[in-house]
């Protein structure tokens, strides 16, 4: 049962692509200011869950409450304006605009900021994500890792209450991963709830207090990271194969 603290509560989420069932009867809830990690093998439905939560695609079944209101029928821009920000697993920069302008669109529309307040938010977000030196660069000229950082910075510029992150840490060196952990901690410190999909489990557990494991479109474990990582079903479905597919670190 959701307590007064529940920020997002998704119940019975189902999603199919034609004959392929990608999500079946998924329950997912997060409290305000909580940080939750999502792990699971390739094709488990993690990104699809995030798409459904953010409104990028409608669910076929279930409903989603955000801040106590049913947002199931709202489209992505409406959910963003209410405080759900997201990044994309495959970065989707606005290539013809500068990095700063990428953020400005986000701050002004999703973040509903005006004038100097919008500028300040963008500069703050760029600084936090270490992207200030790239502010005037056209986004299409960025390398992959910088595009991922841009995804984070842009989502942050919408001033979200809930930030949905999809594999922003892949391909980082240890030092870069440590920086990213620091950034996410600062974001959490501002009272933002974070859902973070990531294959690099040892990085993830430095930030999140709860871990969800998905497999075959279902949630197979949900709880404290230690418990979830020792769960037999999780080891069987994910960690066993992860040792081969996703070398940790």
């Amino acid at each position: 049962m959701p307590d007064a603290d529940t920020l997002l509560d998704a119940r019975g989420i189902g999603k199919r692509f034609n004959a392929l069932t990608v999500l079946s009867d998924v329950d997912f809830a997060i409290r305000a200011e909580e940080a939750v990690g999502i792990v699971g093998p390739n094709g488990a439905g993690k990104t699809t869950l995030l798409n459904v939560l953010s409104g990028a695609m409608p669910a076929d079944a279930g409903h989603i409450l955000f801040a106590g209101q049913d947002v199931s029928r709202l489209d992505a821009p409406a959910r963003c304006r209410r405080g759900i920000g997201r990044s994309h697993q495959i970065p989707r920069p606005f290539g013809g605009m500068t990095v700063f302008e990428n953020l400005l669109v986000a701050a002004r529309t999703g973040g509903n900021a005006h004038g100097a307040a919008a500028y300040d938010r963008c500069v703050d977000s760029l600084r936090l994500c270490g992207m200030l030196p790239f502010a005037n660069r056209r986004a299409e000229a960025l390398a992959l890792l910088d595009r991922k950082r841009l995804e984070l910075a842009r989502a942050l510029a919408t001033a979200p209450r809930l930030l949905l992150l999809d594999e922003i840490g892949g391909g980082l060196t240890d030092a870069e991963a440590a920086e990213l952990v620091d950034i996410i901690r600062v974001i959490r410190g501002r009272g933002v709830a974070v859902v973070w999909i990531e294959h690099i489990v040892h990085v993830l557990v430095q930030v999140v207090g709860r871990l969800v494991c998905m497999d075959g479109g279902r949630v197979i474990a949900d709880g404290p990271p230690d418990t979830v990582l020792r769960d037999a079903a999780v080891i069987d479905a994910y960690l066993g194969s992860a040792a081969h597919d996703h070398p940790v670190g």
Binding site: A56, A76, R108
Partner: peptide
């Protein structure tokens, strides 16, 4: 103005524009 930046965002990536709050 505001619309100009939103337009360019839509031009470059509609789905991303929607994800940051642009009414496409």
């Amino acid at each position: 103005g505001r619309i100009g930046a939103s337009l360019q965002a839509v031009r470059d990536d509609e789905q991303a524009a929607a994800s940051v709050g642009v009414r496409v």
